[in-house]
Structure formats: C-alpha cells, structure tokens
Design a protein around this nucleic acid. Structure first.
Lengths: 252, 252
DNA sequence: ACGCCTGTTGCACACAATGCAACGACTAGT
DNA sequence: ACTAGTCGTTGCATTGTGTGCAACAGGCGT
C-alpha cells in the first residue's frame, strides 16, 4: 500500500539471508543506490539494521528486542509456561508450545529435554507444518474452507517415508486429529523423533495454541511416549481452563 | 531520513508494549487515522504486525522468524555454540554469550544450567549494562572517548547494594576489567547471583563478544565460582582462535 | 430507531521520496 | 606513482506518492 515503506521492509528478509552491501540491496530492490541508501539509513536509525565494519548491512539488535517483547506479551505463553516446565520435570522430554498465525505455525515456547540427546528446534522458527503434531492440532481446528484452502496451497516435502505426502492425506489426518482431540507425529519429520500433542482452547472452545512432548527413539519408543498422552492432555486442559478464566484485557 | 518509513517503523516499538487499535496508533504517531491505517496495512502485508480478532494490532509472526534468521547468521555465535555447550557440560552452570551493538549489550546465546535453580534471562533481552560481567567486558574494550560518552549517558539503577552506582565507579571498574582481561558480577544484579566472564577477540585483538558463567549462591559460593575462571578464559581463548582463523566471508 | 464510535475509501494538493549526475574515498592494477 | 575502476555519499529538480480531509460504512449500546 505504501511504496516507500514497502520497499524498506523488503530489505529485511533480504538481509536475513545474510549481510549485503549497498549495491546489492539497491539492485535486488530495483531502485537507485541513493534511494536504497536512504531507506537503509532510516532502518538503521531504528536499529533494525546494523552496519558492520566492512560497511555491509545486516539485521540489527533491536529486532531481537522487539521479537522478545512481542513474545512476552502473548497471554497464552505466559499462562502456559509454568505448566510446561512442570510437565518437563515429570517426563524429562522436550516440551513445545506453538500458535497458528497467518498461514504459519510457530513455536513460541520450549522447555529443553533433560536428556543429553536433544532435538533441534528454536523458538520463532516456523514449524514443519505438514507433519508436526502441534501444526495438525492448530490447523485441524480452522473452519473447513480455510483448512482446505491452506492444505491445497502447502508443499508436502517428504522429510521421511512417514511424512504426509499430499493434501488429501493431510486433510484426512486433520479430520482424525479433530475428532480425537490429540495428535502425534511418529517419525514424520525426523525418522527417529516422535511427538504427542494436545490442543489448548480458549473460552469459546476454539484452539488458541497447541503443545507437544517430543523425544527421540533412542530415549523412549513411540509406544512408551504414547503412555504420556493422558498427562499431556491433562496439562493442556489445565492451561485451557486457566486461560479461559483470564480477564480478557490485562494492564494497560 | 525518510518520513514515511520513519513513521511506519515507529509503530513497532509502540506495539511492542502491547496491542493497540487504529486510533491509538494514529494519535501516538501524531498523524491522521487514514495515514496510520495505510502504514499498518503495509506492515501487515510484510507480516510484521498481526491483526487480532478484536481488530487491534500487535506485532506479528515474521518478526520472530526474522530475528531468528538474523541470530543464526552471526558467525561468532555459530562458532562459539559448541564450546559453550561443552563448558556447560563441564561445570553445569548457565553459560551466556553476548555482543555489543549500538549502545546495547545483548545476549545472543545461552546454555541453561543443569541445576534445578535457574536464573532468568533470555536471548534477545537487553543486558543490565552497568553490572553484568559480559557488559563490562564489551564496554571495556571500546575506544576511550566512546566508552566515556556511554558511561556518562547511562542510568545506574541500584539493583542491589553492590550495583555500580555511577559513571565514575563504572569507568574505574572498566579500567580494571580492561587491564586484567576478565570480569565478574558478584551480586550486582541479583543479590544471590554471581558471574565470571571472559572476552572473545577477533583477529585484530578487538573484543567481538563476551561470555560468562552464572550461578546462584545456593549452588556455589562466589569463591567456588571464581575457581572456574581459568576454564572460562581457556574456552573464550579457544573460541577467539577459531573465530580469528575463519575466512572473512562465508558462502553467498 | 437513533446517535456514537471506529475503521475505511476517494480525491485534490503539496510535499517528500526519487533518480540523476557529480563528487570523494579507497583499491587494484600496470 | 599515476590512473582506472568501484562503492558510498550529497545536492538538486522533478513528479510521483503519501497525506489530510471529508464523506461513508458498519457495529454497538441506549
């Protein structure tokens, strides 16, 4: 809608791929160097880009601070956190919390496994949307047309032989998840990693977040992990209750 | 430098404090509602703001993703990480990695303590700049005029009775740190928490990052923590060497 | 049904962002 | 050492683009 801002913001994902110098930025934006310079300067003043010693630009510090403040303002996250920690202390495995937003599913909290073998993931990282247990839970709750639209639009990378291969299989899986009220990912993303997840619901019953417990085969088998399901569901329900009871608006 | 972009970017920190509706945004920017609307729309298209059900705006998902990609592109962090993990496995305490950028010191990596009592911190969060060991290390290496300028400009909150109270004391402490090549924070931020830190240097000898080990009194006394100093310094030096040896530009 | 509040759209005007060209700093090549 | 080339930076005229206004639409409460 606003050309100038649009151009300026396009610089961010560009720099996310790695540092770039003025010429590169100007070229990839399709604008004159002087224009790119001014945009970069403005971004710089706001701390969103940083100029390193070799004069190239990269993303700046304030971006972290912003993302940080943003994530801390999410009510679900704040309420859920202590419960996730408690769950982790009981079972010892990695616990994740995720939300759906604008066609993306992303982790907003994580409690690390206490076992030496950890799975790689990080808060803020987009989730493997077609296979992760939390993604299934979040998408399964969307209104039917939107769910279908997204399913059609997605790519279905075969991370492993057990990844869901296409929109049909995915939608079918979502139907199952929706029906049973919990979800799994048994080696669909990483051959040796399994997850069990449950949804967190708001006062109106809509799914607002999803949580899961993940563990590699070498620590517990899929069957053993599934025995944790009642515990996971109970934790999710506890969080749901607490979340629903919250006064809608908090502080200023 | 660019008015439009400037205004648009000013919205981000504003929303970081919490969700706001169109009117509030327009008012706090000092522009017409229609202007604010267009700016917000542009931000929205880029995923930087999200419109929640009650129509209010808050920071969006892509912000996380950007911050995430950004932090993963930092060479120091990538190189240091495995060493930090190794150090954590040896001593069991929380290990931090921080950098200085544009008047701010911020954590860019962290390995959690294996002890049940953990200190609160989060990567992306600005560091308590006047007391943290890593902050002292990073500021101590700045050229004298800049160091002095920053010291004068800072606030000196008395987190505890052992916090550094003013610019004079701070600069004196920095001189000591600079001289000895390591730093501590003994209860200057949280009464019961101590840290020992060491600098990581680039090929030219300049400090590019700083690392520290933190532990609460209830786990180890300050004296015991100080016995880890040689280990911390050795780790920092190892990282420095590896970092200096890196080819300046990596991949595309 | 009415008024009030908030978000949204179309439009004319003015200003602010743009591209150009010239300059300065720095590197590399001969 | 001089030149040719590259890259970042600045001042300026031109116009395109962002702006505020005023009118409209939709929701909510009374």
């Amino acid at each position: 809608m606003s050309q100038t801002v649009d151009r300026a913001l396009s610089i961010l994902p560009l720099l996310a791929q790695g540092p770039a110098d003025l010429g590169q930025v100007a070229e990839r934006l399709g604008v004159h160097k002087s224009t790119a310079l001014r945009l970069l300067r403005t971004l710089h003043e706001h701390g969103l880009v940083y100029r390193q010693e070799d004069q190239r630009y990269r993303l700046g510090a304030r971006l972290f601070a912003l993302a940080q403040e943003a994530v801390e303002n999410l009510d679900v996250r704040e309420i859920a956190h202590s419960h996730l920690v408690a769950l982790n202390e009981q079972c010892g495995h990695t616990v994740h919390l995720a939300v759906y937003e604008e066609n993306e599913v992303l982790y907003i909290d994580k409690v690390e496994s206490r076992y030496p073998v950890r799975m790689y993931s990080r808060i803020g990282k987009p989730v493997a949307i077609t296979v992760a247990a939390v993604a299934k839970l979040l998408l399964a709750d969307l209104p039917e047309p939107e769910r279908r639209a997204i399913a059609e639009r997605l790519d279905y990378p075969m991370y492993t032989s057990r990844s869901l291969p296409n929109a049909g299989a995915f939608l079918k899986e979502l139907a199952v998840v929706r029906e049973q009220g919990w979800a799994t990912d048994l080696g669909g993303h990483e051959e040796s990693i399994n997850c069990v997840g449950a949804p967190i619901r708001g006062a109106d019953g809509r799914v607002v977040a999803a949580m899961s417990v993940s563990a590699p085969n070498v620590v517990v088998t899929a069957e053993e992990l599934l025995t944790l399901l009642p515990l996971v569901r109970r934790t999710a329900d506890t969080i749901s209750r607490e979340y629903s009871g919250t006064t809608p608006t908090k502080k200023a």
